[in-house]
Design a protein around this nucleic acid. Structure first.
Lengths: 222, 222
DNA sequence: TAGATTGTTAATCGATTAACAATC
DNA sequence: TAGATTGTTAATCGATTAACAATC
């Protein structure tokens, strides 16, 4: 039950599944389901039961043989593991169509992830106002001081492709440590900066390739 | 140069990289760069040079030893491979905040991917109108006949989580073959239906885990 | 020809999964 | 105790990468 893990040795594939486990245990607890097991988990989220058990075992003995996993315990465990027992404040960079949607996206609903600041270039009329979501939109030129006000280290990047690298440089200079990158640009950043990319066109094209060639594959996560 | 591939034997990891290769060769051609090589490709998109060469070699001899790869040839090749030499029509299901942003997202800009229909439930006032993007918004109850009009087999699912499975069932019944799933639900679909999922909260939480634990990793695609 | 870079092999690495002893 | 299910090992599978002969 005690953590015995150096997170740096955790398989990357396991890390990517952690949010799925966390979400599931939150759901189960909401439904007042007090226990579950690796087979049921597998059926619900599409991850092989052996993989589930192996993933969990990396963190110690989280379950009980012959019984399964206690929902409440596991939910607490993953909440803590993912830093979701405290609030995480996030800045959104680029309030265009996509940025606007992300401002309203319910990250916060069942997680303590909150976009609390937004940025755009001064020529955007939204700058200086508070968006309909209640979040202030600042001039990107003032980013450093505003980020410090709220101790923000994470940014969502949803600017136009041609500005992606230049804005990423600004974010790094302003002290951002993690970037969720919605542009299709491979960002060049110092090695201590973390980038997670979501490439919408790539996902759609991949789907279409699988579909037109009817390539058999179990449903695709990650 | 001749295709010698059964696409079903293509590594899944390779397939996911194909859109990145395609995008790069389009860009290079736009910049009037007539040739490139695996090392430069690697630096630009962050995929190991040996992986690039191996991926390409799965499709035959696409390059020339001592020279590299011809931009024009490769762009044509990947366009055809990804079905981007013809138009692909897509339906968007769920015109909320995210759906609205996706309606405006420039999938089409450099690709022949077009959202040409949108759907929502009849109670949504947008239904029966044409959205500001010029795309008609239909009642989901009428989906089957409308999809047939435009020969649509691909749908983007951006409905609220509680309705995801039920709407997916409707899509399958209406003849959809591929679903780009923006909900966090693991969709249960028949085995001939392809699902590609984008889970925004999962990506953000994964980023935060990497960031707060400062886990060293090369920038993360896929 | 000499130099460059591919295409491909072989080695390595990482992830998945089947199987089962441990044990609740 | 008998039944259930974990935690973990060992086998397998798939993906990456280093290295280099082939060849443009």
């Amino acid at each position: 039950m005690v953590e015995k893990v150096d997170y740096n040795n955790l398989p990357k594939a396991t890390i990517k599944r952690l949010p799925q486990y966390y979400r599931l245990f939150k759901q189960l607890l909401d439904e007042n389901t007090t226990r579950t097991n690796s087979r049921k988990i597998s059926e619900t989220i599409g991850i092989d039961a052996a993989t589930v058990r192996r993933d969990f075992s990396l963190f110690g003995e989280l379950g009980r043989r012959g019984y399964g996993y206690d929902t409440k315990i596991l939910r607490e465990f993953f909440a803590h593991l993912l830093g979701n027992d405290v609030d995480t404040y996030i800045a959104l960079i680029g309030v265009g169509n996509l940025g606007h949607a992300l401002l309203h996206y319910p990250f916060q609903r069942r997680n303590r992830l909150q976009i609390v600041q937004a940025y755009d270039v001064a020529s955007n009329p939204l700058v200086g106002t508070t968006s309909d979501s209640g979040i202030p939109v600042y001039d990107i030129a003032d980013i450093k001081s505003h980020l410090e006000e709220d101790h923000i280290e994470t940014a969502i990047l949803s600017v136009d492709t041609p500005h992606a690298q230049e804005v990423a440089d600004v974010l790094v200079a302003a002290g951002i440590k993690g970037i969720l990158n919605f542009t299709p640009v491979f960002l060049q950043v110092p090695e201590h900066i973390h980038v997670q990319s979501i490439d919408l066109t790539k996902e759609l094209q991949t789907l279409i390739f699988f579909t037109i060639n009817d390539i058999r594959i179990e449903s695709d996560n990650d």
